[in-house]
């Protein structure tokens, strides 16, 4: 690849509004089960939100509603000025601008790492193959695994796979990044390399919503921590007061159980 080629435009377009995600009175049911109850959350541009809470509290469901992997039944969700409805065009518009990283990586096993990264830029962003590969290599370098470009996901370690998954989302130059427990499926010694990548991303000013149990990461990176229980947002606070002086009994109990 030509080293001197002009750098492709990697900066995402700025958010159209100061509000990245606005959730107003959102409810969701899985059959009879009321999984989200009256969620109100406004995320401003460049904000980094960490969402925590016991399992089954609806954290994942909430962030999956933001790119419509789950459908909400009541209330309003506006992502970068686009309200999510049943209109497929709008959903695709939102998904193009919102990157997501999953607990189980969900890399495409039949494609090489490079093909995983260039697929969406080529087919959705209509980039040329050459340009998409340049962008992909740029982000592979940024997650520190450019030498793995030709391998298949199954040949990488869990930490490497998750870093590829982050790079894959970044290749679409998203305005907002969603992380759904990105380190929960990793061996302990691989958690750090993934968290480091996410910290770098935060330093660059990316708007991030992150479901995680990594409280050290939350303390270091988050602007606000959202604590959820039983489908409700129980408490929202900046990290310092959140850890030092939790307001609700449920939050105190949760923190006492995970911080030893």
């Amino acid at each position: 690849m030509d080293q001197q080629a002009p750098k492709p435009e990697l900066k995402p377009a700025p958010l159209r509004t100061g509000v990245a995600v606005d959730m107003v009175g959102v409810h969701k049911w899985f059959g009879e089960f009321h999984v989200l109850r009256d969620i109100n959350l406004r995320v401003t541009r460049g904000e980094r939100i960490v969402i925590c809470g016991p399992s089954g509290s609806g954290k994942s469901t909430m962030i999956r509603c933001i790119n419509r992997l789950e459908e909400h039944q009541q209330g309003k969700i506006v992502v970068d000025g686009v309200e999510l409805t049943n209109d497929l065009k709008r959903i695709d518009e939102v998904r193009r601008e919102v990157g997501m990283v999953f607990q189980h990586f969900n890399l495409f096993p039949h494609l090489t790492v490079l093909e995983n990264l260039t697929l969406a830029p080529i087919w959705v962003r209509k980039m040329s193959k050459r340009q998409a590969e340049e962008v992909a290599l740029h982000y592979l370098k940024r997650v520190k695994i450019p030498e793995q470009a030709g391998k298949y996901p199954g040949q990488l370690s869990g930490g490497q796979q998750q870093r590829v998954a982050i790079a894959r989302a970044l290749c679409m130059s998203p305005k907002i990044m969603l992380f759904d427990e990105p380190t929960s499926a990793l061996d302990p010694e691989m958690v750090k390399e993934v968290l480091d990548t996410m910290v770098h991303l935060a330093d660059d000013g990316m708007t991030m919503l992150c479901v995680t149990h990594e409280m050290g990461f939350a303390r270091q990176v988050a602007n606000r921590i959202v604590f959820m229980d039983a489908g409700q947002i129980v408490e929202v606070n900046a990290p310092e007061p959140f850890f030092a002086n939790p307001q609700h009994e449920r939050t105190k109990l949760f923190l006492s159980q995970i911080l030893h």
Partner: peptide, 23 residues
Amino acid sequence: IPKGQYEAAMALGLGYWRMMILI
């Protein structure tokens, strides 16, 4: 095919046919 494959494809903004044909 695991559900995660569909979700990853959708989250990247691939439409139905591209998701099916490519992934």
